[in-house]
């Protein structure tokens, strides 16, 4: 089962500069583990929590045109031929300044 995964510029140091890599897995969690076997360290930039079981808030991951946060997060189902896109979340704001 092959899935194309598009990788943003900031994570391409893990993929030898490749914009797109191929992986496999029936869920997003399985796909990320498969990718990490070929591109060590990549998964650690995408998940967080003691068990590595939560999506990092600094990234958005999409299956086809859907944000995986609406598809069950790391449990999102992946099918052969799907395309997965990783983008850095663009966010911020003045709150941290106001709070010191």
């Amino acid at each position: 089962m092959a899935v194309q995964v598009r990788v943003p510029t900031i994570l391409r140091n893990y993929t030898g500069g490749a914009k797109s890599v191929e992986g496999s897995g029936e869920t997003l969690a399985a796909l990320l583990s498969d990718l990490d076997a070929h591109y060590p360290g990549l998964k650690g930039r995408l998940v967080t929590g003691d068990a590595g079981d939560q999506l990092h808030r600094f990234v958005n991951i999409y299956v086809n045109d859907e944000d995986v946060r609406f598809l069950g997060g790391l449990d999102a189902k992946i099918a052969d031929g799907d395309s997965v896109t990783v983008l850095p979340a663009v966010a911020g704001g003045s709150a941290a300044v106001a709070g010191g």
């Binding site: 510029t9 979340a89 663009v90 911020g92 003045s94 300044v97 106001a98």
Partner: peptide, 25 residues
């Protein structure tokens, strides 16, 4: 360019802005 506004504080990146900044170029 990636832009945003601060509406009550100066136009200087906050710690939150820095933590999310993912485009070195």
């Amino acid at each position: 360019v990636i832009y945003h506004s601060h509406t009550a504080t100066e136009a200087y990146p906050s710690r939150t802005d820095v933590s999310y900044a993912a485009e070195p170029g």
